[in-house]
């Protein structure tokens, strides 16, 4: 069962694994962020535990709007023409706050403990987004 002598120093073949991970990272980055750029017509969708609680077009906002999400933890989401950010959360990880402001299509803020997804979608002039 034991291999006679495990290789403990990096070999040239290891770089193949590194390369594979880099290719995968770039590949997923292209799939996710490649189609971005359409700066106008961004729709923000906030879902909480699978249900949509807010859906608004950023350019339609004339002033800042706050959305409060109440569950096990409480989150305050601020929406404005310039972007969307989580201003307050009492969750343990604070990942949603660390994400900062998102303003481009394809970006998102995710809160795992409270299962909140704040998603920005572009190219949405009509109500043609179907969220699975």
């Amino acid at each position: 069962m034991q291999s006679s002598s495990p290789k403990l120093r990096p070999t040239a073949w290891d770089s193949l694994i590194v390369l594979a991970v880099i290719v995968l990272a770039i590949g997923t980055a292209i799939v996710f962020y490649g189609g971005l750029g359409g700066g106008d017509h961004i729709t923000v969708t906030i879902t909480h535990r699978g249900e949509t609680v807010e859906k608004v077009m950023l350019e339609a906002l004339n002033e800042e709007k706050t959305v409060t999400i109440d569950g096990t933890y409480q989150l305050t989401v601020v929406l404005s023409r310039d972007g969307v950010w989580v201003s307050e959360s009492n969750c343990p990880s604070q990942d949603c706050l660390h994400t900062g402001t998102v303003s481009r299509a394809g970006q998102s803020i995710v809160c795992l403990p409270e299962q909140v997804v704040i998603r920005l979608d572009g190219k949405s002039d009509g109500p043609d987004i179907i969220l699975g």
Binding site: I22, A25, T28, A29, G50, V117
Partner: peptide, 19 residues
């Protein structure tokens, strides 16, 4: 758990960090 693919956007960063 989220029923949403938005989290896939974190994958490139996480893969880079995993190196």
């Amino acid at each position: 758990t989220l029923g949403d693919t938005a989290v896939l956007g974190y994958l490139p960063i996480l893969l880079g960090v995993s190196l």
